[in-house]
Design a protein around this nucleic acid. Structure first.
Lengths: 254, 254
DNA sequence: TCGATTTATTTGTCGGACTATATACGCAAT
DNA sequence: ATTGCGTATATAGTCCGACAAATAAATCGA
């Protein structure tokens, strides 16, 4: 209450009250969901906390209740909050969060990512990606191999310190996942991959820029091309472990 | 279209126009999201298809546009659809779906699940769960072991053909995941576990009721209790493979 | 003291009006 | 005939205001 200087405006809807820049290309509700998601993942709202009522919060964010509600539905869909009448909207315990949802992962890595969580994620990668490489070695066809080879060439041309280089790295891993012929695997690693990209970027600003990972990538490729599942698995394992080492070093230094 | 017998009702809001049973305990928008999600996963709307406009579809479903929109936001959050002005709301390609989202998985398994997808999921289980068992063997504490033991006792008391027995089975697996101290792993397997439950139920109506899986479970438990990561991994691998065999048999028969 | 009832608060649902934006169309200039 | 630009139009996006439903909390009665 008590705010707008010159009284209310009960009859003046048409004009353009306030210019709303809407930060990114997102729609309004998406922007609100983004903002709330970031806040929750950053711990500004802890599990168990109850958000201010719809009317109040919507007003605070300067959006309509409809837009705010749609944003909350998104968060609900991702397991972050739960709304009940009379009680309000409360943040759910972390165990109910869809931690593997791409958006949730992005929100988690937007700020300073939780060290334990990063470790967990790499642990998962260390489990999944070597197995994926093994499957790829058994199922890849010529097209898969060509995509991988091209990605490696790109990686050689640009280093991982450039965006193009990182994109090529991503392409290489995606090609491997693609070769497994397993959608679930692909979805999972795509999610984790997105997070890992952010980790890499994060690592970058720690000025590390350590080893040249290309030989290790090449070893993975050779094994997959040769159809050697065991070797592919081991080579990929090395790759993930190295990435973890680098990331851990960068994080402990920061 | 063209249905409402005796014309419109432009001035009769207050009473109780139509008794809406709202199938389950869900809220209206949740019910709509559920319905649409099922339809999409069942292939009634194929990737690339465009849903009827908001006003039309909301009317068809007999809900307000707000409720319909909130439902669409949920589907958008799960990567199933994308809305753009002037174009409409279109079903995204399968590669964009969050296949590991618990709701999406549930929708996928609500009807006759796609055989290939089931295979993919079991493949993922076969990768993740043995590794999880190995981690559990290294990190479990006394509490973890007690929970597992209790679950096994429950499984012995009731068989897997009863709901209580299946619940105990779930508890056992959850306890293992819990013991890995890895939230990402837990989230992932919780999702898959839900799907597997449905698969088990599906398998059940195929009148299979095959082997007694308890000895295999016991072997996993013993290995974890003994801290033998290798043995735990192998034992769990056997468990997953057996489950896949049973499910595959039931599905090819149906 | 305990249970039934009322109250109050909060989300849920609705309808309608207006805005923003992207596509499609048509007209004109070249 | 082709190109370019402006306009028309269809669709999602946003907002508002009111009422319904649910339920935690307070109140009342036995």
């Amino acid at each position: 209450m008590r705010d707008d200087s010159t009284g209310g405006d009960p009859k003046q809807p048409p004009v353009n009250p306030t210019r709303k820049p809407r930060g990114t290309g997102r729609r309004l509700n998406g922007a609100v969901a983004h903002k709330l998601g970031l806040a929750i993942l950053a711990g500004e709202y802890a599990p168990g906390d109850i958000l201010s009522g719809e009317i109040a919060f919507a007003e605070e964010l300067e959006v309509s209740r409809s837009a705010y509600r749609e944003a909350v539905q998104v968060l609900t869909a991702k397991g972050l909050v739960e709304s009940r009448t009379k009680t309000g909207t409360r943040v759910l315990p972390r165990s109910r969060w869809n931690l593997l949802d791409p958006d949730v992962l992005a929100w988690a890595f937007a700020g300073e990512p939780d060290v334990d969580f990063v470790r967990n994620l790499f642990e998962l990668r260390a489990i999944v990606e070597p197995a994926a490489a093994a499957l790829a070695a058994e199922r890849r066809d010529k097209v898969d191999l060509k995509v991988m080879k091209d990605a490696l060439a790109e990686m050689r041309r640009h280093t991982v310190s450039t965006e193009l280089g990182r994109a090529a790295d991503r392409d290489f891993h995606t090609a491997i996942l693609q070769a497994t012929r397993n959608d679930a695997l692909l979805t999972l690693s795509a999610s984790i991959g997105a997070a890992v990209n952010l980790t890499t970027e994060f690592k970058q600003r720690g000025r590390t820029l350590p080893r040249n990972a290309l030989p290790d990538h090449l070893r993975v490729y050779e094994a997959i091309a040769a159809g050697d599942a065991n070797e592919a698995s081991q080579a990929m394992r090395v790759l993930v472990d190295l990435a973890l080492d680098d990331t851990r070093a960068a994080m402990s230094r920061g």
